[in-house]
Amino acid sequence: MHEISYQQAIIEAMVEEMRRDEAVVLMGEDVGTFGGLTGTTVGIIEEFGDTRVLEMPISECGFVGASVGAALKGVRPIVELGLADVSLVAMDQLVNSAAKMNYFHDGVASASAVYRLWSGFRPSGGAQMSQSNEAMFAHVPGLKVVMPSTPRDVKGLLKAAIRDDNPVIFFEPKGCYALLGEVPEDDEVIPLGQAQVKCSGADVSVIATGVMVGKALTVAKKLAAEGIEVEVVDPRTLRPLDTETLVASACKTGRVVLAQEASQFCGYCAEIAALLADQAFDSLKAPIKRVGGAETPVPLSPRMEPLVVPGEAAIEAAIHSVLG
């Protein structure tokens, strides 16, 4: 094990996969010597050259479509889209092309590619650079959607995403980038579709995604001192969803809080709430509570942030609410 940041774990995953398989290429804006908007492509062009690190013009629809065409021919592109907000420019190619290729071909060919999206809130990022739009993609059959919350998870899941034969939308919450954590030295591949219980507890389940996982763990630690046992579960992969682990936790505690950074209406947690209402109904002792962003675009002013971005206090309040 060695301790690295979430950001460094992404670099390691990509470099190791590019060494393992020559068909893996990196595409995106400023991914060359600049090192990427996200700082996660530092040093990659130096090792692999410009035949495998392809710098793109600001032309997201064009190069996302090109990644699909190249994938159909056997290339395995990692496409760094930078801000998740920008992915919307390429939505046609992601939803109408990438997601449907395997189906149109009736299983004969598919578009194996990873689309890396730097998502969510950052201080004063503003409304077009702070969105967490995972629910839009999780809605689409044919896409897989991943949102890791720790350095170890992001490395193992990115490796799995690169090796997967389907298009994978890979969310990297900005709030996770600086997190430090232990990551194994060996080639750990974490299969897509497996949730993880991040801390075990008997009184209430907090099912949280992305940056909310860390916040939930902080709250769990605080409440443990008050004698409340909080179980924190991270789905890690949003589609396909590990329903078994989530339902088991809800049945065990009987009280559920769902937490996401994105605005709440039609958000990803609504899907989990529906799942638990269907499969854990008889075990529930209280209504399911959701924690999420406000129903507004994200404002610029730091003074407005606390009202719009969900924090630990909101999780704690929701826990007290379901405990009655």
Binding site: A23, V25, T51, R52, L54, C61, G62, F63, V64, G65, A66, S67, V68, G69, A70, A71, L72, K73, G74, V75, D92, Q93, N96, S97
Partner: peptide, 15 residues
């Protein structure tokens, strides 16, 4: 919608 795919197939030829 097909034009970017074609560019990609050609890019695949290169790679």
């Amino acid at each position: 919608g097909g034009l970017p795919l074609a560019v990609g197939a050609a890019l695949g030829q290169r790679i």
